[in-house]
């Protein structure tokens, strides 16, 4: 019970008025122990999770867990998917390692400003246990894909024993539960599209999958596959399109008028020229333009509030007061 331990420590410490009582400091030891235990427990678990992580005392554990879960998911994905992957989704160990390292670093560095509005000085007791546990299963065949970022998707599935029995009757007894991912970027339907299979063991489960490029359209089916390669689909997800990671290809610029009353009119269309690209470059300035062209903009701007708060916290003590505009501002170089 890491939380109650840490609470006791906080109360004890708080009784010493001379000491500065920072609410976060005391639970570190408990957190470390608990993190080790949690890591061991999770290592034993299969990909399917039926309940959320519990008894987590402090941010660091959550961050370790988050990074750990990501790492594990990626490793599973690497080891089990790689043989069946088409060229478009080949994973490289180096990429994975660097991604995991990046994720761990991000996780350990992340200090959320928004989370501060939830800080009232002590961990919560959460009161009593929840009224009831959540259902282990819903008794339906379901496959769902969710976009996490331009190269990362989360999927979960459930198939019933009855459905597995039905599939077995059709395929024979050597059918194995399989996730089949379709790349429907060009085909717009699963017919004739590239696919790759991942064998799974649990009829309920979830998975993180890293893909090579953004803007792919993918779809998932869960079903049984026999040794002859025949696949019996039990559930299919909707098609998800991964978001783009950079500037769109040049194309016509359309202008639209929408009046305050809500009337809409496409007024005119013009070609996109080099002058337009130059204008965008000058508007953004070379720093942000370069990030945009390298597909790195989202990692800067999207995280700015949280990341910048972290910077601010670390910055305290090094420098204070309004300084000059950062060199990245285009107008400061104008």
């Amino acid at each position: 019970m890491a939380i109650s331990k840490s609470r006791k420590k906080i109360v004890k410490k708080a009784k010493k008025p001379a000491k500065k009582a920072r609410p976060k400091a005391p639970a570190k030891k408990a957190a470390k122990k608990s993190a080790k235990k949690t890591a061991k427990k999770i290592a034993k678990k299969s990909a399917a999770k039926k309940s959320p992580p519990k008894k987590i005392a402090k941010k660091k554990i959550m961050k370790k867990k988050a990074a750990g879960a990501l790492k594990r998911a990626v490793r599973r994905t690497t080891t089990e998917i790689q043989p069946a992957l088409p060229e478009a989704v080949l994973l490289h160990i180096d990429d994975l390692e660097s991604m995991v390292a990046h994720a761990s670093r991000e996780a350990s560095e992340r200090v959320s400003a928004e989370a501060k509005k939830f800080e009232i000085g002590v961990p919560t007791n959460g009161l009593a246990a929840p009224q009831g546990e959540l259902p282990w299963e819903y008794g339906k065949d379901r496959a769902v894909l969710l976009v996490v970022d331009p190269t990362f998707v989360f999927t979960y599935w459930e198939v019933t024993n009855d459905s597995i029995k039905r599939a077995t009757e059709s395929l024979g007894n050597d059918g194995k539960l399989t996730l089949r991912f379709y790349d429907v970027t060009r085909t717009h339907s699963i017919e004739g599209s590239n696919f790759w299979d991942v064998e799974v063991f649990d009829r309920l489960g979830n998975w993180y999958l890293r893909l090579l490029g953004p803007e792919q359209k993918i779809c998932l089916e869960v079903g049984l596959k026999n040794s002859a390669g025949h696949f019996y689909a039990l559930a299919r997800s909707s098609v998800m399109r991964l978001p783009p990671q950079g500037l769109a290809k040049p194309g016509p610029i359309k202008w639209m008028v929408v009046t305050p009353a809500g009337d809409k009119l496409i007024s005119d269309v013009e070609d996109y020229t080099d002058a337009d690209l130059d204008l965008l470059k000058r508007i953004l300035g070379p720093y942000f333009y370069d990030l945009l062209m390298r597909g790195k903009l989202a990692t800067i701007t999207g995280s700015s509030i949280e990341a910048i708060f972290y910077e601010v916290e670390n910055f305290i003590g090094l420098q204070a007061g309004a300084g000059e505009s950062p060199g990245s501002s285009p107008w400061s170089m104008a």
Binding site: K50, P52, D149, T299
Partner: peptide
């Protein structure tokens, strides 16, 4: 959110 997409709200801590 952090990194610009959905990772904050969909990761090993909360995807369940």
């Amino acid at each position: 959110g952090n990194k610009g997409y959905a990772e904050v709200w969909c990761n090993g801590t909360n995807d369940w």
